[in-house]
Design a protein around this nucleic acid. Structure first.
Length: 424
RNA sequence: GUGGCUGUAGUUUAACGGCUAGAACAUCGGGUUGUGGUCCCGAUAACGAGGGUUCGAUUCCCUCCAGCUACCCCA
């Protein structure tokens, strides 16, 4: 019989104890910060009706990146590629009767059928944080603060990241001003989103291909090249009275007064690809030269809920991924080293006759909340200590014939070499 | 989906159109008959898969697979 490969499925990876420990460190820190903001944890099923992704997700996500299969009843099911439709579905079931506002988070895995690359796997995990039912500016403010605090919780160096914010309302006002046609809006936004990746000539050429006129292109370029909000309304004066501008001006000044001045800036080129965003949009960037990329992003998506035949309700959220987050921590070298057997007590079996005594002692110690790793084959004491060294176990429990005769056992501290004698 | 680079033990790697594919670290066993980190000895373990060229391929060619990476796309 041919052997089955022991490789993981493409785009997925095994979590060996070391990687699992790192992941737990990140997830635990996320959890702690979310709870400190009064958010509560939820989870939805891995499978959803495929239609909920096809309807709104925009781009490839609801199409070729979706893992779809048919169940025995002929239903088309999809493995979730993102959390937002699921959490909106879940909330929409009870929205009218539940206490509001809802501040929710989850840590879950997702599958997207795409080619793996740096910072992007087919299976990945992300934290999703959302606030439902609050449309006011303070919900936006709190979400942004949470996004920044989540990164700050890992003690990154100064100037290691920045939160770039923008507002879809501001972009829509621009489109009103230049009187762009409806069917040109989405392709134009895609191009604006790519501003930093394309050369100026390519960008202009692509905009001409969409059918934009020179004066329209001129204004769009002024818009995405604006260095800050004041510069923007200086160049495009009509924007001064629009909602998006006033909103952004306000929220930045509030974040500044809360002490986040170094971490926030306006960036007119932050657009985001999902169609369902309709208010604040933002992206958090790693500023490390070796890893200059968006770590995660989010925004306001008030109208997504009508997908489920429910009246619209306000929603805002974001979702950091495990892989991009880890790259950030690695690029700044702020991942702590983890000892897998921290606080473990190693209890070797030193002779055949001691089997029962050793198991009994382990049982007693475990009941007292010690973490006891029992030796399962007979070992010489020198090898037992060597094993403890190799595995960075700092406490070794010695129960040999001599100890048994005296009715005691010893706990040896591997760092100091000291031994404590305790009665059995 | 498109392009580039790369596939030798668990890991890092060496060499080669032919001879037993060599090492280091890791793992396991032993060296001191109850006290470790060092040291010494030994064992296990690899040419990604298939096809072609050739007397002979791990080496050259093709296809596939996988990995990395840049695009496309993007929470």
């Amino acid at each position: 019989m041919k052997n089955i490969s022991n490789q993981e499925i493409k785009g997925t990876c095994d979590w060996m104890p070391e990687e699992m420990a790192t992941r737990n460190y990140i997830f635990n820190t996320w959890r702690q910060v979310c709870k400190s903001f009064g958010f509560i944890e939820y989870l939805t099923p891995l499978l959803e009706n495929a239609d909920i992704y096809r309807a709104k997700s925009g781009g490839d996500l609801g199409q070729k990146e979706l893992m779809v299969f048919v169940d025995q009843g002929g239903r088309e099911l999809a493995i979730r590629p993102e959390m937002t439709p699921s959490v909106v579905r879940m909330v929409s079931k009870t929205y009218n009767t539940v206490s509001k506002p809802l501040k929710l988070f989850s840590i879950a895995n997702f599958i997207r059928n795409e080619k793996p690359q740096r910072g992007r796997n087919r299976e990945f995990w992300q934290l999703n944080c959302d606030i439902f039912s609050e449309s006011g500016e303070l919900a936006d403010l709190e979400i942004l603060q949470l996004a920044i605090d989540l990164v700050l919780a890992f003690n990154p160096p100064k100037n290691s990241f920045v939160l770039k914010i923008n507002h879809r309302g501001l972009i829509n006002s621009l489109f009103d001003i230049i009187k762009i046609k409806d069917d040109q809006k989405t392709p134009t936004m895609r191009l604006m989103d790519k501003y930093n990746k394309m050369s100026g000539d390519e960008l202009i050429k692509s905009m001409e291909e969409i059918g934009l006129k020179n004066e329209q292109i001129d204004k769009i370029l002024k818009f995405i090249k604006a260095s800050d909000l004041d510069d923007l309304v200086d160049k495009i004066k009509e924007l001064k009275t629009c909602f998006g501008f006033i909103f952004l001006k306000n929220i930045i000044s509030q974040l500044n007064s809360l002490g986040y001045k170094d971490y926030v800036e306006f960036d007119s080129a932050v657009i985001r690809g999902f169609d369902y965003y309709d208010g604040l949009v933002f992206e958090l960037f790693d500023k490390h030269p070796d890893n200059n990329r968006a770590m995660f992003g989010g925004g306001r998506y008030n109208s997504l809920s009508n997908l489920f035949g429910v009246k619209d309700f306000p929603a805002i959220g974001f979702a950091p991924g495990d892989e991009t987050f880890k790259l950030f921590l690695e690029s700044w070298n702020i991942l702590p080293s983890i000892n897998l057997k921290q606080d473990y007590y190693y209890l070797p079996l030193l002779s055949e006759d001691l089997k029962n005594d050793v198991f009994l002692l382990a049982k007693k110690l475990r009941r007292d909340n010690y973490r006891v790793e029992l030796g399962l084959s007979i070992t010489k004491i020198s090898r037992a200590l060597e094993y403890a060294d190799k595995n960075k176990i700092t406490q070794v429990i010695i129960l040999g014939e001599d100890e048994k005769k005296k009715g005691v056992y010893k706990i040896k501290d591997m760092l100091s070499g000291e031994e404590k004698i305790i009665n059995l």
